[in-house]
Design a protein around this nucleic acid. Sequence first.
DNA 1: GTAAAATGTTAACCGTAACTAACTTTTATA
DNA 2: TATAAAAGTTAGTTACGGTTAACATTTTAC
Lengths: 128, 128
Amino acid sequence: METKYPLSAANEDYLEAIFELRDEQGATRSVDLAEHLQVSKASVNKAVGILREAGLVEQEPYGAIRLTQTGQERAAEIFRRHTRIKRFLVEILGIDEETAEQDACRMEHVISTVTRDHLYKYLREVLE
Amino acid sequence: METKYPLSAANEDYLEAIFELRDEQGATRSVDLAEHLQVSKASVNKAVGILREAGLVEQEPYGAIRLTQTGQERAAEIFRRHTRIKRFLVEILGIDEETAEQDACRMEHVISTVTRDHLYKYLREVLE
DNA sequence: GTAAAATGTTAACCGTAACTAACTTTTATA
DNA sequence: TATAAAAGTTAGTTACGGTTAACATTTTAC
């Protein structure tokens, strides 16, 4: 299968949103993704196709989207990165929730794993 | 003229590199830009055209590239952002120069002005 | 001063990621 | 249950930012 396929920032966003918008059965609808990410249904359809090819989600035609095991892990990691960056912005730099959310959305795609880990460590130390 | 034209991340990179690679006369050569940014001469040519349209640089055919007044200010601000983010990564998070440089390159394009200002303030406080 | 090398320009192309419009399928409702 | 609305799909378009290849202009070296 696919071990560590790199995802584009856009596709990381789709994966993360699928993770966030799951219902009790773990299903996510395309239309909700489109709404959440403010893109067209067509864009969602294409992106989900890519995530499917990459083995990160499953979806039968006209059906709901579900994360695979790998997809789930990958998405959770992205989500964790996002929330920690946001925490840093809010709790350390004192930035408002709204701005922090938007900035975290973009920063999560550009920091290296080295910086990510140092940031986590810093958060643990400073917020004990 | 153009008051606050938004630049894409790519074009901010070109502008910043033009700023960094100026010689004593304030001139930058396309070929050096291409080398520095690791792109083709054709890409440089296209990007410089956009910066020219935006009133940020001047260049007569086959001549050197020079920043206009606005271009100079804009580039200096981008450069400042870059170096401060890098300082943060190196001096606060303890990341190595190499990684910090690469991450700063990407982070500089995605942080809001709010976050930028809070980061500067934090740097001043922590590094007194 | 001319020929070769270096530099700059242009045209045509590619991939990504968005869009709209038209269509199919599914779901909900009257 | 038939039909209208909602959701999903597909095809074709656009903009951006890169590419290569061929060409034009400058600069350098003999």
